[in-house]
Amino acid sequence: RDVGAGKGVGSALAFSLLLISASSLVSPAWFQSDLFSFGLFAACAWSEGNEWNQTCVAYRTLEDMPDLAWKVSSAALLLGGWVLLALRALLLFSWTVLPKDFCPVKGRIPTQYMQAASVIASLLGLLLFPFSLASEVARLTCGPSTVYSSGRCHLGWGYITAILALVFTSLLPIVGRLQEDKTREKKILFSSIKERIIFV
């Protein structure tokens, strides 16, 4: 029961982080000024004093994205890291729900490597995306913006949420390790009591 509960908690945390990461990826508010904001796959504009009435454009293909750094960080790194995180969450969920006989590879796939690859890809994407501040779109929006200098723009909630999701994803193995240690302690304690009863 303890092992099943641990796996259930792990899969629930993985899916929660997956949803948080997805919301940050689709957010058009990674960098924003008073009248414009842009993210990985969308940009929005609004008139002065009317922020609730926004006109948004989605970048549906790589050609729509205005800069090479934008394309690499968005499509290859951050989206790739999210896909790896999604695969890991699905594996953990299937191992929690499906019986062992139905899933012969249960526990054999090293999900910690998938998580490590997801964290590395996401980290590289987050570090690379500010290079897009040197693009024409960013300069029109943010004024004198350059790499790692956002000019008149400031960080939006999408970028901050992505950073927080990355931090929590990095901490997941520590939570899993603590859960495994507790389960082992209980197993050892139960084993020793059983041995004493048999001895008596």
Rank of each mutant, 00 (worst) to 15 (best):
L85I: 04
L85F: 06
A86F: 13
L87A: 13
L87Y: 08
L87Q: 03
L87D: 01
R88K: 14
R88A: 12
R88T: 15
R88N: 08
L91Y: 10
L92D: 07
L92W: 06
F93N: 01
S94Y: 10
S94A: 13
T96E: 06
T96G: 02
L98I: 00
L98K: 07
P99E: 02
P99I: 03
P99A: 05
P99K: 12
K100S: 14
C103N: 14
C103E: 14
P104A: 06
P104N: 05
V105N: 05
G107D: 02
R108M: 09
I109F: 11
I109T: 10
I109A: 13
P110L: 13
P110S: 14
T111I: 11
T111N: 07
Q112M: 10
Q112Y: 06
Y113I: 09
M114K: 06
M114E: 03
M114Q: 03
M114G: 08
A116K: 03
A116D: 08
S118Y: 07
S118W: 08
V119I: 14
I120K: 06
I120G: 08
A121L: 14
A121R: 07
A121Q: 05
S122W: 00
S122V: 06
L123D: 06
L123P: 02
L123N: 02
L124F: 13
L124M: 12
L124G: 10
G125Y: 00
G125K: 04
L126A: 06
L126S: 05
L126T: 03
L127T: 05
L127N: 09
L127K: 11
P130F: 09
P130Q: 10
P130M: 10
S132K: 06
L133G: 00
A134S: 14
S135C: 07
S135R: 05
E136K: 00
A138H: 02
A138Y: 00
A138Q: 03
R139K: 15
R139N: 13
L140G: 00
L140D: 04
T141Y: 01
C142D: 05
C142E: 03
C142S: 01
G143E: 01
G143L: 01
T146A: 13
V147F: 09
V147S: 15
V147I: 02
V147E: 14
Y148S: 08
Y148D: 07
S149H: 12
S149Y: 11
S149V: 02
S150H: 02
G151A: 08
R152S: 15
C153I: 02
H154M: 07
H154W: 08
H154G: 12
G156W: 00
G156N: 04
W157Q: 10
W157D: 09
G158I: 01
Y159N: 09
Y159A: 05
Y159T: 04
I160A: 13
I160T: 07
T161W: 07
T161R: 01
T161E: 12
L164Q: 05
A165E: 04
L166E: 02
V167K: 04
F168C: 12
F168D: 05
F168R: 07
T169L: 15
T169C: 13
S170A: 15
S170P: 00
S170C: 13
L171I: 08
L172D: 11
P173T: 11
P173A: 15
I174M: 12
I174T: 14
I174V: 15
V175F: 14
V175L: 15
V175K: 12
G176M: 12
R177C: 14
L178Q: 13
L178K: 11
L178Y: 12
L178T: 06
L178F: 12
